[in-house]
């Protein structure tokens, strides 16, 4: 029976088949997202600087700005986690410490993204 299976069937789903470069690709896709959002982000931050509280809140509450801000915070924390992961892999050579740091970075980046997303949603829904 086993010789009826093609080599492709044996390879698919095993090992890193097409997933080995997932970190590399996700890092670049989030980079492209941030590259596209960078101009809008700089403009928004510069605009908020000379607005009072109500004005700043109204600016972020505008649907387009709120959606882009959600996209930005998700992409930025995701990209940061992927980048810090590589730095820790390269420089922390103690196995236990590396695992602790990797998990801590993942948790902190998720908390940062979740808190930022909740803040943007609160701003957007309350106007």
């Amino acid at each position: 029976m086993s010789q009826l299976r093609t080599p492709l069937k044996k390879a698919l789903g095993l090992g890193s088949a097409k997933h080995g470069v997932q970190h590399f690709i996700t890092q670049r896709v989030t980079a492209v997202a941030l590259l596209l959002l960078a101009g809008w982000f700089l403009w928004t931050v510069l605009s908020v600087l000379h607005l009072d509280y109500a004005g700043a809140r109204a600016l972020v509450a505008q649907p387009l700005n709120a959606v882009l801000m959600l996209a930005f915070v998700v992409a930025v924390f995701w990209h940061a986690q992927l980048g810090l992961q590589v730095v820790i892999e390269d420089y922390v050579h103690t196995h236990g410490l590396q695992i602790v740091l990797q998990i801590a970075v993942k948790f902190l980046c998720f908390l940062g993204a979740a808190a930022s997303v909740l803040a943007v949603i609160r701003i957007a829904l309350q106007g």
Binding site: Y53, A56, R57, V60, M69, V73, V76, F77, A80, G83, L84, V87, G112, A115, S116, L118, A119, V120, R122, I123
Partner: peptide
């Protein structure tokens, strides 16, 4: 700069949370 920017996201998060919380926090 990547490591520095990762820490910089704390300020972005703080600014958004403050903007959601109210005028005093934002001030």
């Amino acid at each position: 700069t990547g490591i520095a920017l990762a820490f910089g996201t704390i300020l972005l998060c703080a600014a958004l949370l403050a903007l959601a919380a109210g005028p005093d926090a934002f001030a």
